[in-house]
Amino acid sequence: MGNLIWHEYSRLTAITASVYAVWAGFWALFYRKFFWDFVAGTLRDPGGLQPARSAAVFVTIIVKVPVVPMIAMLLGMFMIVLEFPFPQLKSLAIHRSIVLRIVLLLFQTFITILFYQGTNAAIWSFIAALCYTRAQILGESMAVAKENRGKDGGA
């Protein structure tokens, strides 16, 4: 077998998942729906699924004020910027942190699974997080950006 560098592969999966998250969050601003509203919800004709009263908090942050989709978009954009990476981020140590990526991707999974459009983004982000976890377990480390080599205390 060839030697797969897991964090380089994870980068590609994370970018794809994050692009999906941004796109899903964008559409969730216009078509607002709590994904888990079928749990104890009632189907009204017309009107669609009405979430249970216990899910009121999710209705507030997804349907009334779409905070969750906005967070998903911002997080997704940050992930893209971090992964590409954005030139300004290159000089920071977080650019090379695999652990940070795992945490952010798991958070992205959690955020995107809450709203209707985000389920694929959630699955893909989870896969990306698993790939980064594999990289972390194998003890891979990301190369220092060329311009930072030899600098003290830098990335």
Partner: peptide, 8 residues
């Protein structure tokens, strides 16, 4: 409810 189904 043009079809009696939920999106999920």
């Amino acid at each position: 409810q043009i079809r009696k189904q939920t999106a999920q």
